[in-house]
């Protein structure tokens, strides 16, 4: 299916470091920008960008002295292909202005370049790309499960579900407290095996958060699935729809719980290396269960996803992406 994505030059409104290695970026949303929770943008990461030094083509700058591109190959610091980043949220201000929120974990050259961008700089983004979370999945309660930068798409999703009257709870797993890019209220500490929802986190707009850390320094000691089970032990599994985004290993563990408790729906956001994100390179293949001799069909995360029903996905756990 041809993508509805377009190329945009989006102006950065703010940049704020968070946790040990995250950056929040807000971008000015053009009037005709439309996106839904779960979609993402594919960002060109360059410093300075070719368009500033010398255009990708030469036509944009008719007065540019010829040739300008040899120096460019040496002067430009960039990743070759773009980097996919989830649309964390799309917020409307009281004055009517809208901003796109991104949360980027700094893990390598591309994300580092993004973290060095300043307000007023522009980002060359293709988007919005991909399908979106189905907000009408059955369940009065919505449990959102994320790890690492997997919290990103869940932020806007949480707000949208709250607006639809769902009782939303977020679950977040990280190695230690430094891996949490949120403005947590002061005085939080370990809760051992007890799932204790934290409220009043500004980035989450009111939804309570249950935290799990592997070293136990904050919230439940263990994995996010441990926090999920501790919470369910208090409230039961009835009338719950699950939504998840995180490494394959985490999503696969979530899918196991879904099967165990026979939950009707668990939508997960999948990752894979993306060469193009427009459906031409065929790198982002994911196996989805099917009634054929192979037992699966190949789907493409950038076109058919990134959101899939967990029960349909064959988790190969080969992909680590942005680690929690």
């Amino acid at each position: 299916m041809p993508s509805a994505a377009k190329k945009w030059l989006l102006k950065i409104l703010s940049s704020r470091l968070a946790g040990d290695d995250f950056v929040w970026l807000t971008l000015d949303a053009p009037p005709d920008w439309q996106s839904r929770p779960g979609q993402f943008v594919n960002i060109r990461c360059c410093e300075p960008c070719a368009d500033e030094l010398s255009p990708l083509s030469l036509d944009d700058r008719p007065d540019a002295p010829w040739p300008r591109t040899r120096g460019l190959e040496i002067a430009e610091r960039s990743t070759l292909v773009r980097r996919p980043v989830s649309i964390c949220d799309l917020r409307t201000h009281p004055d009517g202005g809208r901003e796109i929120v991104l949360l980027v974990r700094i893990v390598g050259p591309g994300s580092r370049i993004l973290s060095a961008k300043r307000p007023g700089d522009t980002l060359d983004c293709l988007g919005p790309i991909g399908n979106a979370f189905n907000l009408d999945a059955p369940g009065r309660r919505a449990w959102l499960i994320g790890g690492g930068c997997g919290i990103a798409p869940l932020v806007g999703l949480g707000r949208a579900l709250v607006a639809r009257g769902r009782e939303v709870t977020l679950f977040y797993g990280g190695r230690d407290s430094g891996k949490i890019p949120l403005s947590l209220p002061p005085g939080l500490g370990p809760t051992g095996t007890q799932a204790v929802p934290v409220t009043g986190i500004p980035e989450l707009g009111g939804a309570p958060l249950v935290i799990a850390t592997e070293d136990g320094s904050l919230g439940v000691k263990g994995l996010v699935t441990d926090a999920l089970q501790a919470y369910a032990a208090q409230t039961g599994w009835d009338d719950v729809a699950l939504f998840g985004c995180g490494p394959d290993r985490m999503m696969s563990a979530v899918a196991t719980l879904v099967a165990l408790h026979d939950l009707p729906s668990c939508q997960v956001s999948m990752e894979n290396f993306m060469g193009c994100a427009i459906g031409v390179c065929l790198s982002c293949a994911t196996k989805v269960r099917a009634d054929n001799t192979a037992g699966f069909v190949t789907k493409f995360v950038c076109q058919d996803g990134p959101i899939f029903e967990a029960r349909d996905v064959i988790f190969e756990q080969k992909w680590e992406g942005c680690k929690p």
């Binding site: 190329k7 083509s57 030469l58 008719p62 292909v81 773009r82 193009c276 031409v280």
Partner: peptide, 25 residues
């Protein structure tokens, strides 16, 4: 090839730049 991943409209941009080079030279 690969440049189309960086910018899906790289090929037509090259056409325009080529035309400009020919004219300038």
């Amino acid at each position: 090839g690969t440049a189309s991943f960086v910018d899906p409209a790289a090929a037509p941009a090259v056409v325009r730049g080529l035309e400009q080079y020919l004219a300038a030279n």
